[in-house]
């Protein structure tokens, strides 16, 4: 054996940026994450050439999955052309040779911050959600070791209590995005800060979802056909954002999650948050070919 046999010919970086041992660790943890849906799996989380908190967890999962035949879509707040989405997508294609796409239907991997696309994802697609804080119990228990024990004991009483207190005090559950949800009837997870609108899209879905927090070094998964149930009381049904009746001022689509834009002189205008859905609708209106896939919401109603 020689020193040379232990290493490899010098290269500035590895394919897909991560070295082989980083990828193997992620693969092992991704398999465990699938096997125990919604359970946070610790991983080493290597530094990547992007600041922590900017999608480094999602990026590590994507870089493990990607190959030159992949087609990658990256969105931030629903938009493909958001500055950070553009930067991440460019990095992925640069280090992997994968093709870039804005079309949800054409992507083999969709990496996203804060949204699940409106078009239904299919059975060979992977959704990678960037997660800032993987711990749904952080608000009631900031100590990570104590919180871990609570998950081990399926002890979610404190979480239920805060939701109950909100109803008593405010008349409704005040949780905005990142609505805590029970996965496979056992582990409560944060679905990442997606709006409440998007959580039902993870329940009994056809696609596979990974959620990865690079800074906090935890990853978890929701396999296809897995129950994801927002924590609600039986007499207080789950409520998504009241966007069903809003219409996009650019594309005229309605019944989807919208961005609110304050306008001069008061009031608001709305634009569809899934920007590529808007683009497709505009193209269709202009008579250009643009296939809009089946959407999770139809006429503002969720219908899986």
């Amino acid at each position: 054996m020689s020193l040379a046999s232990l290493t490899k010919p010098w290269a500035a970086t590895s394919y897909g940026f991560l070295d082989a041992s980083a990828k193997r660790e992620l693969r092992r943890k991704m398999l465990k994450a699938i096997s125990v849906p919604g359970c946070q799996m610790p991983y080493a989380s290597r530094e990547v050439p992007m600041a922590r908190g900017w999608g480094t967890g999602g990026l590590q999962v994507t870089l493990t999955l990607v190959n030159p035949n992949s087609s990658v879509k990256v969105i931030d707040q629903g938009a493909d052309d958001g500055v950070n989405a553009a930067s991440i997508r460019r990095f992925i294609s640069r280090v992997s040779g994968a093709s870039e796409t804005w079309d949800t239907l054409a992507a083999s991997i969709v990496q996203s911050r804060h949204r699940v696309p409106e078009e239904v994802m299919g059975e060979d697609q992977v959704l990678v959600l960037q997660v800032p804080n993987p711990e749904p119990l952080r608000g009631v228990e900031p100590n990570i070791s104590v919180a871990r024990q609570m998950h081990a004991d399926a002890d979610y009483g404190k979480l239920w209590l805060t939701l109950y207190e909100q109803i008593v005090r405010k008349g409704r559950i005040m949780q905005g995005a990142a609505y805590p949800s029970m996965v496979n009837g056992r582990h409560v997870m944060t679905p990442s800060p997606i709006p409440r609108w998007d959580v039902p899209k993870l329940n009994m879905a056809r696609h596979l979802t990974f959620l990865s927090a690079g800074r906090e070094k935890r990853l978890f998964a929701v396999p296809p056909f897995t129950r994801v149930e927002p924590l609600v009381f039986s007499d207080r049904p789950y409520r998504v954002e009241d966007h069903a009746d809003l219409t996009c001022r650019r594309s005229n689509v309605s019944g989807f999650f919208m961005n609110e834009l304050p306008i001069d002189g008061g009031g608001s205008a709305f634009e569809v948050s899934d920007s590529n859905l808007g683009i497709k609708a505009i193209r269709q209106a202009e008579g250009a070919p643009a296939e809009i896939g089946k959407t999770w919401y139809r006429n503002g109603e969720f219908s899986a």
Binding site: A51, R52, G53, W54, T56, D76, Q77, G78, G82, N84, R113, H114, R115, P132, R172, I173, M174, Q175, G176, A177, A178, P193, I194, P195, R196, W197, R215, E241, D242, H243, F257, M258, N259, E260, S273
Partner: peptide
């Protein structure tokens, strides 16, 4: 440092969700 500067990223989806509940 990464988490600190990430607050510069857009958060309008989560903000919208909070506004809706409020």
């Amino acid at each position: 440092s990464g988490f600190c500067i990430h607050f510069k990223l857009p958060h309008y989806v989560t903000f919208q969700s909070v506004l809706d509940a409020m």
